[in-house]
């Protein structure tokens, strides 16, 4: 594989590193947190910019409203809490006070998906991408590793409009370039291939790369596309790849209803109907367990991707 793991790190620490840099470079950036400073890794930002940090306590609805109000004074607020409490819990606050009000708030969400692990289903949101992508004007980003999460954090500060930035808890491979420029809405072709397109987001990008390597050993050439921006979706890149390979597997740590996979299906249905399989959770809640156990049990790892590829390639032949 042309990518190497530079050492396992959590994507939330990528967010923290990005915030540290923004604290030093952009005086308009302010941070809010709902009693999860340690989890969001923003202590350095707070230490260096105490006047630009707002601890709101366990009151996420209030946090979203305060963030909307701060923009009215010309600031760029970054809210921080778990993905579950960043979306479902405060959906109407985001909808009315942020999205409909066109406020430049960055909703930064840690512990997304099933890899949150042992805390179980109350905290493992698998519906957040769907919730957020349905809001008019909302940008939805789910970077794949530490370096990309840091780059995304920097990029959204310069992007005008509400953004949902989704990242995770566990330490995972860090394999993208440390100095990358993050282009919002631009799909990244990680690896060229001709037999199948793997369209992956978040933690599943690394799994897709491993799957592609294993498939290559079986004589199957997989193209791997990293969709870090689910909305706006890079439809052109998707259609171009699907035209070349003739079949697609979407890979995400999210429910197959409402996630990246459905955005891909809609795009292909409109422009180039193509067989597609979904590596995603299948309309279910999660449960307690280690991240690796959960990825295995819920069919979200490289083995699941390989199985989906074998299935979709057969459909292509029919």
């Amino acid at each position: 594989m042309k990518y190497t793991d530079q050492g396992k790190q959590d994507t939330r620490s990528g967010y923290g590193a990005g915030m540290t840099e923004l604290g030093r470079t952009n005086p308009k950036v302010v941070a809010l947190c709902a009693d999860l400073v340690g989890s969001l890794k923003i202590q350095t930002f707070i230490d260096e910019n105490p006047e630009r940090f707002f601890q709101v306590g366990i009151a996420e609805a209030n946090m979203m409203g305060i963030a909307a109000g701060l923009t009215i004074g010309g600031y760029i607020p970054f809210t921080g809490t778990f993905a579950n409490f960043s979306t479902g819990r405060v959906y109407d606050q985001i909808r009315q006070s942020i999205a409909y009000s066109d406020k430049n708030v960055k909703i930064c969400a840690s512990h997304a998906g099933i890899t949150l692990g042992e805390d179980g289903a109350t905290h493992q949101i698998l519906e957040d991408i769907g919730l957020m992508k349905m809001l008019p004007g909302m940008t939805v980003i789910n970077p794949c590793d530490f370096n990309q999460t840091k780059a995304a954090t920097l990029a959204i500060a310069d992007w005008h409009g509400p953004v949902y930035l989704r990242f995770g808890r566990p330490k995972v491979a860090n394999f993208t370039a440390p100095d990358q420029i993050f282009e919002i809405g631009k799909a990244l072709t990680m690896q060229d291939g001709t037999d199948v397109t793997l369209v992956a987001t978040g933690h599943l990008v690394w799994e897709a790369l491993i799957a592609a390597e294993n498939l290559a050993n079986q004589g199957i050439s997989a193209e791997v596309i990293n969709i870090h921006t689910i909305k706006p979706l890079d439809e052109e890149a998707l259609v171009r790849s699907a035209r070349k390979t003739g079949c697609v597997v979407s890979c995400e740590e999210h429910n197959f209803l409402g996630g990246l996979g459905e955005s891909v299906s809609r795009t292909l249905a409109q422009h180039l109907p193509t067989p597609q399989e979904f590596v995603a959770t299948k309309d279910t809640f999660g449960e307690s367990g280690t991240p690796a156990q959960l990825m295995e049990k819920y069919g979200l790892n490289n083995k699941s991707i390989e199985a989906a590829v074998l299935k979709v390639i057969k459909r292509k032949a029919q």
Binding site: V30, E51, R52, F54, A61, N62, M63, M64, G65, I66, A67, A68, G69, L70, T71, I72, G73, G74, Y75, P77, D92, Q93, R95, Q96, S97, Y100, S101, K103
Partner: peptide, 26 residues
């Protein structure tokens, strides 16, 4: 300066604007 109608959200927004005033030394 803000959409309202779904109730209960305006005080949070007003607080955010008040915090911005303080940051701006306004």
């Amino acid at each position: 300066r803000i959409a309202s109608g779904s109730l209960g959200q305006g005080m949070s927004v007003a607080i955010g604007a008040a915090l911005a005033k303080k940051l701006n030394k306004d």
